[in-house]
Design a protein around this nucleic acid. Structure first.
Lengths: 353, 353
DNA sequence: CTGTTAGCGCCTTCAA
DNA sequence: TTGAAGGCGCTAACAG
């Protein structure tokens, strides 16, 4: 079932069928209808590969998702909402213009680059959700095809980057803790140092502390974005004498915050009364736990959308200058920071968003 | 940068380059090395479209995800873990053999069939995550290319189906409520009737009730799998005199169960003391709420894996007879059914059937 | 072991 | 308004 079959059946040339298929050129109405009927009757569907080859454009963008941040991170929670939301964001602009989305999960290992290369032969552009390859490798790839980093390091040269404004978000959160709740001793639970967003958040934490004389970081812990990381951090805190404990625990993401909170509570520490706990990401579960989690919301869907749109622009015009786009985050104040519980109705609404 | 460039540079024919590229034929070691070097130096990557066209195989499978179950359902929660987990499950067999995954979100509307058709021209087989097109349309598509329904209706002819065993799972849950907690009045919160899994669960509920004389269904509510549905059902329950209320509320999924539970609690009804509430799916948040949610766990990742493997088999041999595969579910007993809080480890190990 | 040569299915000038 | 024909980049017989 090819274009030729349709052409023969309709007694026209393949060029005409092609024209009809795309509404492009002017074709006599009667001819058009005849061809359309045949197409319908035969159930003809054009072959994507042949179209791609001929047009020299695959009309496909690739999305590379990190499979895991390494041992000790529970995948299901880690990138959970992240991938799902970003995915939907990405699919929207892509689907709107009739293109497709090719997705692949990768781990940051020595095969990653080769897999990326092979992928680069199947798409018109690549969306990479984090630095899973080294910067020079990225540069090489970027020479072959347009690449946009989603939530990647904003300092990466040679590619476009779209990211949430981790810095402003973290600083707003810390500022809230310090100025509203008078916290003076903060404990930070960081994400893995390889993750650009983890680094950005941690740096912002330090930065904001520096702005508040008298406020100190009384401890750091590096987790892997999994709830177990928060748990371990909490145990570390529990092991110190009561008077050396922090006023608040700031976590690089919600999973760790929830893990920390539960561990503290399980050991008789009241949250937020004894110690406040806050996270980052605003995952669904954060609104459900007790106390509900104060956190920072990232526009994940928008992240996907913007990244994809930029990629599309760049595919259309490869000469475009590289750009970094930071999307605004939003402080979500709930109970775990020490703020009063919101009326139930409000909470409900937030759950359903 | 094509195969020809490499061939010219290495002073061999394109056939040889192709051979080297695939390790297929025997090529003299020295020649092979020379070609390999040139490939490396030039940074050559084969064009996927050309390969597909030539091989008459695209080495791509398509995954169709439902965008939403219609108004009133909150997407982020509905297919939440579902899509993410299934996706990972699917990607695994696909990636193992070097194929790719094309993904597309669709709504069940009048454009769905057309979009599916166009997608069918870009892949070797299709994974459809639910009945978004009518049965006859499905049959037509299935004639053109292999199709596997993921969590679709097991009675669909002409396609393979891989699904969780909703029936056994639901029955085990109801049975637990009746036999362990002596529930006699059950209220059922169903999912939308168009959803095959919603129907399967509801039917299983009725079926199990029929097996227990003296136990009655004291009410039904049809939600759309969103937490707001559970909330509405709860309001309905709250509107009835205390003595007419159910012993337990069985929900077709966890979101609705959580919604119902929160609404009951907000109105002074203790869960599970006054009324027990149970769900289905075992989403992450279920373990976090208070009381923790008793539910049924579906092997979502496995679902994706099995569905994809079957699709691959069918692509390899289209003559294969159609099959339905039901994957075992697991009862996850926590607190909301009335059981005492159990150590996490125990719950994990309690495998059903 | 290596080269020659048809296609694969569609698009797109260039002519008519 | 329509047709003829040359690619697009790669694979796979078939020869040598």
């Amino acid at each position: 079932m090819t274009l030729y079959d349709v052409a023969r059946e309709a007694d026209v040339s393949t060029a005409t069928v092609s024209r009809v298929l795309h509404g492009h050129d002017r074709v006599k109405a009667s001819t058009r209808q005849r061809v359309l009927d045949i197409i319908e009757a035969l159930g003809y569907v054009p072959d994507g590969a042949a179209q791609s080859l001929s047009r020299k454009r695959k009309q496909i963008v690739g999305l590379i998702a990190v499979e895991s941040r390494g041992p000790g991170s529970d995948i299901e929670q880690t990138s959970l909402l992240f991938l799902e939301e970003v995915l939907r964001g990405v699919e929207s602009p892509v689907g709107d213009i009739g293109w497709s989305l090719l997705i692949s999960f990768m781990v940051r290992d020595d095969t990653a680059y080769a897999r990326l290369q092979s992928m680069s032969g199947k798409v018109d552009g690549l969306l990479i959700s984090e630095g899973i390859v080294s910067s020079p490798e990225l540069a090489t790839l970027a020479r072959r095809l347009p690449i946009v980093l989603v939530a990647g390091s904003p300092d990466e040269p040679n590619v476009d980057v779209v990211d949430a404004d981790n810095r402003t978000g973290t600083r707003a959160l810390v500022c809230h803790l310090v100025e509203v709740h008078n916290a003076t001793r903060l404990y930070y639970v960081a994400g893995p140092d390889e993750a650009p967003d983890a680094r950005a958040r941690r740096n912002a934490f330090d930065e904001e502390l520096a702005r508040h004389p008298g406020v100190t970081a009384c401890g750091y812990f590096e987790g892997r974005f999994a709830s177990s990381g928060g748990k371990l951090a909490a145990q570390e805190i529990l092991a110190t004498p009561r008077r050396d404990r922090p006023d608040a625990v700031v976590c690089a993401n919600d999973q760790m915050a929830i893990g920390a909170m539960r561990e503290l509570q399980a050991n008789g520490v009241a949250v937020p009364t004894d110690i406040a706990v806050v996270g980052f990401d605003d995952i669904y579960s954060g609104a459900l736990v007790t106390p509900s989690l104060t956190t920072v919301s990232q526009p994940m869907r928008l992240l996907g959308e913007r990244a994809c749109s930029r990629l599309l622009e760049r595919i259309a015009d490869p000469a475009l200058p590289h750009q970094v786009e930071l999307l605004p985050t939003r402080l979500v104040i709930r109970e775990s920071c020490g703020c009063a519980a919101a009326p139930a109705a409000l909470v409900q609404d937030r759950v359903q968003r």
